[in-house]
Amino acid sequence: MFYYNVRNSNDPARTADGLLRLKQDMASAGIPPRGPDTTLIATWNIREFDSKAYGPRSLECLYYIAEICSKFDIIAIQEVREKLDALDKVRDIMGRGWRYIVSDVSEGTPGNRERMAFLYDSSKVSFTGLAGEIVVPPIEVKKNGKTVRYDPARQLYRTPFIVGFRSGWTTLQLCTVHILYGEDEADNPERTREIGAVAQFLANRAREGQIEDANLVLLGDFNIYHPGDVTMKAITDAGFIIPEELQEVPATNTGKKKRHYDQIAVMPQMWRMETTGNAGVFDFYNTVYRASDEDEAAYVPEMGDAYDVTSKGKPRTDSGKTGYYRTYWRTHQMSDHLPMWIEVRSDYSVDYLQEFLIEET
């Protein structure tokens, strides 16, 4: 991490204090140190990263985002917008060796001009050369047992992004998604269709032997309300596994209705794919931009006119000020989603050498 520019933040002492608390709280939350024998994989929807509609994020919050990301080896990021200024700044803060790979912009209103991104530490994780946006294949139409035509399949509104990485002995193909939110209902059929389409596409590739040399990881923002919903079943029905250590983790959205929007699912294709039992969701709002009178008062001068005045030109009430800070302003600094993470083994040298002993006996 490159901390020199902390001095250029609006309040250097506050920023430094927040970074120190983040370091301590992430360790207390059970996020293990990054090491040579394991790989830490995370997924994080960083809200409108970084939309012109809400103004640029502060240097302080970019430092907090970078500090959180630096605790993992590979981070799948959703809601990266067309301009990459904020992502560039975060990468620069994280220091030499960090790289990113991004998809093209998803056009159309539901696509929201979003990109998918993978941020990774190139000193530990190597890019295999595979990077592409998934296109669902056309539907084969048959008549009397013969193919008569191929009809175009409905694509996902935000194109899934698949990238290959190698970490130690483990080769991975990570596919990140941001599934359509749609109407406010748990089992929205369009959402279920999108999840099923991408999960089944990857499963078919695996069955056909096209991904036999890598382990599949499907991760991102699925907009799943609860693990028992039909939308979650669309993932597991395709053959993906939700690791046991992720099945009881807290919800990942920060709103009043706690929901399990984000997920990580795996489909091992090789023997070199094991999770360690370490996984979780990190709630940074216990640490920075806290829902407290102290933090609210500290950030009042930085909220601008949107904090002080309603659309009618009248000052907000005290309750309105608190609501604005806690549910809107701070989520456009950090996010309305929490990062989810899992640890996998990446050193199988002992297992490999022991195979020779078994063969001899």
Rank of each mutant, 00 (worst) to 15 (best):
F2I: 09
Y4L: 14
N5A: 12
P12S: 11
D25K: 12
A27F: 11
I31A: 09
P36K: 07
D37T: 13
D37E: 14
D37I: 01
F49A: 09
G55Y: 12
L59F: 12
Y64S: 09
K71T: 13
I74H: 13
K83W: 03
K89H: 04
R91D: 00
M94N: 05
G95T: 10
W98H: 01
M116R: 06
S122Q: 03
K124Q: 07
S126P: 02
I134F: 00
V136P: 01
E140K: 08
E140C: 05
K146W: 13
Y157D: 01
V163T: 11
V177L: 10
I179T: 12
Y181H: 13
N188V: 14
E194W: 02
V198I: 15
F201K: 12
V217H: 00
N223D: 04
H226R: 11
D229Q: 02
M232E: 06
K233R: 15
I235C: 05
A238T: 04
I242Y: 00
P243H: 00
E245R: 00
E245D: 10
T252W: 00
N253T: 06
K258I: 05
R259D: 13
D262G: 03
M270I: 13
W271P: 12
R272G: 14
N278S: 15
G280H: 02
V288A: 06
P301S: 09
G304W: 12
S319H: 12
Y324S: 04
Q333D: 11
W341A: 01
S349P: 12
V350W: 09
L353E: 13
Q354D: 13
T361R: 15
